[in-house]
Nucleic acid binder design. Structure first.
Lengths: 100, 100
DNA sequence: TCAATGTTTCAAGAAAGATTGAAATGTGAA
DNA sequence: TTCACATTTCAATCTTTCTTGAAACATTGA
């Protein structure tokens, strides 16, 4: 997952999809939004899906992609807890709204 | 930073250094801890330092590395806020101890 | 069936990253 | 000075990842 996110185009795709959590977006719309030709977008969408960060669903001619919020949460959790051993200063960075 | 963390040896280095936040650890100790020959460890330590995730300080013959907790916090914060737009379900993953 | 649309797959090349062993650098002690 | 130790740098090689354009596949509507 970290590898999947460490690439500009893919980070932009995630940002776009998090902003459209419910609706999701088609491959073409995503490609346009991030300024990539179709094959490039498809390549990166595959990488993100392989990493489990997004999901896809065919909807007639379009393929709708959605961010997997659960996976993003798991990644943040991994960084906080496994990688950083729950260090309080790192937890604190979430801001006062964190925790629930 | 995401790229720097998306590599097994480097993730292990970070884990080792977070566990020794105060003391830090020398290049040699780190190399042994993560099972890497010296040049390999040095290569990855450089990458982590270039990314701002660790700092180094010469101490006579040794070079002591330390995790930069502030940077790790900034990275988690980036994922939560910039990348994921502060999505509540992602924030929630911090667990009940989050926020301060 | 045919054509149009949306998307992926493929092949090729370019670029970036990882690993290794040997050599070089810096430091302290005899 | 010289030696030993800790670490980095270098060069070579290998692997992986990115990008592009063309071709293929899937779906829909005329």
């Amino acid at each position: 997952m970290l590898g999947a996110l460490s690439q500009g185009t893919r980070l932009n795709i995630i940002r776009h999809l998090v902003g459209k959590e419910r609706e999701g977006a088609s491959a073409g719309e995503i490609a346009e939004a991030v300024g990539a030709i179709s094959s490039k977008a498809s390549f990166h969408l595959s990488a993100l899906e392989r990493a489990g960060l997004i999901s896809s669903e065919r909807r007639s001619r379009h393929i709708i992609y959605r961010a997997r919020i659960d996976s993003l949460g798991a990644l943040v959790s991994f960084l906080m807890n496994d990688c950083c051993d729950g260090h309080p200063d790192i937890r604190a960075c979430c801001g006062p709204a964190g925790g629930r």
